[in-house]
């Protein structure tokens, strides 16, 4: 599949934004004493605002991808059948929820029922939106590398991971240390690495589909004689993207290095300085960029079979 930068940027920033919102909510939910208001007031407000800004940037970027953006508002209309529509509705619902969340932590005690309920709603809607983003791709039976529950799992885990790292950086900026968040980050780093490894194993399996099954001319040898085109058409541009195995392996290595290994190294010595945490966040972001680029570049659409290529 052609890796479009607008979609790559959209999935990463919105994943990061929702991760941040999820952990902002988690802090309020886990707070029992109510004295969190004193020390955590500003970092929580800042993290929710940054989270919401990233979500908004992601949505803007996804609109840039549309060929006919004036009809973008219609994308909310098919909630019952389309994952893209569901993603849009959840993304839109996030805005009032975040405003309510910020209002409750400013105006009420964080251990009040109102603020906890709002925080739980915020956490649920964050997870739902990222899950829906993953399902947009996972529901396509035409792309074998995407049609798997591993895809939404990866989206959610990587969104949470990048959100947790950024949350850790914000807390550190306000001189707050959080053992709990650090443990969660380490666990997420492990989980993200393991599911990504399983995903790479899954897409490495040879495909059962071939030019024979696609054309139904299964009895004998089938090969493409002529595409019938004098230059690239829409299908070739959209689905005909190809990378060499060597380049792919190198990029996979770099993405895992930046996304998982570098943050682990930055955070392994505690207490980590703000600069180290910032490096971890930045490395993770660029690792994600590579990971998402590969997610598109490695996926092969079945239309390729008709052009004598693999799928």
């Amino acid at each position: 599949m052609h890796p479009a930068f607008s979609i790559i940027f959209f999935t990463i920033t919105s994943g990061l934004g929702y991760g941040l919102l999820f952990f902002s909510g988690l802090y309020v939910v886990l707070d029992r004493t109510g004295d969190i208001t004193e020390s955590l007031f500003s970092p929580l407000v800042v993290s929710s605002i940054i989270g919401l800004t990233l979500v908004a940037l992601g949505i803007l970027s996804s609109i840039l991808h549309l060929a006919n953006p004036k009809n973008a508002w219609r994308a909310f209309l098919r909630f019952r059948s389309s994952w893209l529509s569901r993603e849009g509705v959840f993304a839109l619902l996030t805005f009032p929820v975040v405003f309510a969340f910020i209002y409750t932590i400013i105006a009420t005690e964080t251990n009040s029922v109102t603020s906890k309920t709002t925080a739980i709603i915020l956490m649920i809607i964050s997870l739902l939106t990222v899950y829906s983003t993953g399902m947009i791709y996972a529901c396509l039976k035409t792309i074998r590398a995407w049609n798997s529950p591993l895809v939404p799992t990866n989206y959610v885990l990587l969104g949470l991971l990048s959100g947790a790292l950024t949350m850790f950086a914000i807390l550190n900026y306000y001189n707050q240390q959080s053992e709990l968040l650090l443990t969660l980050i380490m666990e997420l780093l492990c989980l993200a690495f393991i599911t990504k490894a399983i995903y790479y194993y899954f897409i490495g399996k040879p495909s059962e589909l071939s030019i024979k099954t696609a054309t139904g001319l299964s009895s004998r040898k089938v090969r493409l004689l002529h595409t019938g085109e004098s230059s690239k058409n829409f299908l070739m541009r959209e689905f005909g993207f190809d990378i060499s195995v060597k380049k792919m392996l190198l990029l996979r290595f770099c993405s895992i290095l930046l996304m998982v290994v570098m943050p682990t190294l930055c955070l392994i010595t505690q207490p980590a300085s703000f600069h180290f945490i910032l490096i971890a966040v930045i490395c993770n972001f660029f690792g994600l960029l590579l990971e998402r680029w590969l997610f598109f570049a490695e996926a092969k659409h079945v239309v390729n079979l008709y052009y004598g290529r693999e799928a």
């Binding site: 599949m1 991808h65 549309l66 060929a67 006919n68 953006p69 004036k70 009809n71 973008a72 219609r74 994308a75 389309s82 893209l84 947009i136 396509l140 039976k141 035409t142 792309i143 058409n233 829409f234 299908l235 959209e238 689905f239 659409h301 079945v302 239309v303 008709y306």
Partner: peptide
């Protein structure tokens, strides 16, 4: 054509390559 926003998702879902985006109209 009055409702399409040109997101390409249907072309991705089609295994036969029978949907094509018109660059001029964006649909």
């Amino acid at each position: 054509q009055d409702k399409c926003m040109g997101c390409n998702l249907c072309a991705w879902a089609c295994p036969y390559g029978s949907r094509e985006l018109d660059r001029e109209s964006g649909t």
